[in-house]
Write a protein that binds this DNA or RNA. Structure first.
Lengths: 207, 207, 207, 207
DNA sequence: AATGAATGAGGCTTCATTCAT
DNA sequence: AATGAATGAAGCCTCATTCAT
């Protein structure tokens, strides 16, 4: 399908990927201009369509590519031997942070793609996400040791609370960072904060 | 600024607002067509620009207008005498549901506006949201009775967990509804589920 | 449908029609350029699409318009009181010549449209032609006096021979004109030639 | 001129010719895509232009090639010893049918090429046709026995009527076939009909 | 105030042709 | 001879915005 593009010299591939990633992340699908992409990538108009046929296929290629890199990196780094969810969870947060630090543009693109309204791609994105999200959640929660939960606790819902707390904290910190002058997240502080919440939840749910 | 528009006969004002609300909610900022808006509102092309100068100002006027209506209705209905956060919170959820049911188009528009990437409006939206969100959170959490919390509990963070759990549950149900055949949220079921989580959290945090 | 265009000042309408007629007649549907049309008509790009939505609708409007003018003029001038086919036929040929002389561009366009391969419009043209051609033939042959035919003559086929002879002659003369230096048909000569054929056929088929 | 192409292995030559023939016949000159041709022929883009320089020369080479094959086959099969035009003519029709059945793609291409409006090739086609048509007509009518014609008959014009009748009938049947569900010509029926017309004309023109 | 014709820049996409390998 | 990546002009069409009436 995209063999023409994939057999390109890596340097050029990257130039095109980065240009497209950046343009889509900044402006969204509809507003992104293929003109800008080719200008930034320093290739001709025709060449982009030689590789990707049309704007939509370029976008979806980029999405699959980004998700692939992100997920591989992510799951490659998680230690599934940690069975205690309150220990695995901080680990996952750490790994996620590392991956974002390693591929910031890719992460930006994925986030932007999912805060997107363009009807042309909505279905295709949802199709891809449905599968990925459910399978990722399952994987991340796989093989959790539930023996540590206090008796009488509704374990399924307790786990949900743990997850939502983690997400909530992450979003809060992101929002704070946006408001601050630097726009940068202080990861060390976040992790420390994270530990406090974990302790709080441990007292609630564990024996 | 928009005095010309505001001194219009109310019926015509509404026609224009509804047409624009609907178009933006359905298609997003960039994809929305001023042509469709004037056709739906049954006014001339020139008139729209006579009132609002350009598309962006129309959109932002609509956003301010929507937020205003929504917030007024929302805060008008909340009973601030309920000081127990685990009781106020379900109340807030109920009120939110009522307001959404009363102004579905306005709510759709606000949601759509915030899942929007168009670079032309991103900054302006964020500017508006920054202020609103922080002040709303403060208001909703005002005057909470913390005497019920067990001793030794980190109250500020416990409240955060409560909030994030509520948000997490809401998002989960929205996602479920999207995947289901109807696409409709069963509010009664959600509220029942909500109660279970509240009980779980009460056992954790309260005396 | 095309009310916007039709309520234009006639001078501008004509400018646009002529420009489009000429471009399509010269280059065929696919090869014709809307860019050239607007340049020739001295209007902006957007305006053409404001009137006609897209290239195909412009073309089909032109076709219906051309056929309408041509047919009205044509049938308006034929004297249906002439019942003898060998007299009506030269009359028809004469009328056709007159109409072509009056609207040469329109005739050129109709001919060009029908020597056209573009798949985008083939169906629409055939749809229009099927109806027009059968009804025209019927009208032109309506009420013919067959009492003059010799007994034993297969009248239906004899009439076909008469028609095909007329068409054959007309095509031959057109081809000759194309080869000559002027490219112009000498109508007087053609009519004289026509009379000779009519006499020949009268001797064959009539009492 | 095309020596490079002609010194190719015949199998490859044929692959290219058939691919191009098919594409042009189906889509017309302008609409035909050199991309599709090279894909179908399984050669590289560059090679096509190495052999034919450009699209136009490819098309005209194909036209000359097709006409050459068609005419050779056609004239090779006609029995010029049949001197009676009313007998030679059905023979010619039969031969034409045989050749079309033998080389359907070539015939399709020739027909399509001549119902083509593309300005780039119009002149070149007309140039080629002018010569071919006049010389073919002369050849086909060569050495006709005119002694059978009744005295007083204008023989040259009578022959024209015979020719036009044959053409008229052929076109009528083609049009009928197009409208029918199958789109196929029933050759046996056409030939029977042909015989009726020949008898009619024999009674008119022959002693 | 109100209209809607008119603009023209910019959008995506196609395609014959070239050229380095 | 043979490849196919690369070009860029030209194609059709959209759309916010302006302006004469």
């Amino acid at each position: 399908m995209f063999s023409k593009f994939l057999s390109l010299e890596p340097e050029k591939q990257e130039r095109i990927l980065n240009a497209a990633l950046k343009e889509f992340a900044q402006k969204g699908y509809k507003n992104a201009s293929t003109n800008e992409i080719v200008k930034e990538a320093n290739i001709s108009k025709g060449l982009l369509f030689h590789y990707f046929n049309n704007k939509k296929e370029l976008f979806l290629f980029l999405y699959d590519y980004s998700l692939d890199i992100f997920m591989n990196e992510f799951f490659g780094k998680i230690d599934m031997n940690v069975k205690d969810i309150l220990k695995r969870w901080p680990q996952i947060a750490l790994v996620k942070i590392e991956v974002i630090r390693k591929y910031p543009e890719i992460f930006n693109f994925i986030v932007a793609a999912n805060t997107e309204n363009a009807s042309e791609i909505k279905n295709d994105l949802e199709l891809r996400n449905k599968e990925i999200i459910t399978s990722s959640y399952a994987k991340v929660l796989e093989d959790i040791d539930i023996s540590k939960f206090r008796e009488g606790i509704d374990i399924k819902r307790a786990i949900n609370i743990i997850i939502w707390t983690a997400e909530g904290l992450a979003n809060q910190e992101k929002a704070k960072a946006k408001l601050s002058s630097l726009g940068q997240i202080n990861y060390e502080k976040v992790l420390a904060e994270f530990d406090i919440y974990i302790e709080l939840l441990r007292n609630c749910f564990y024996k």
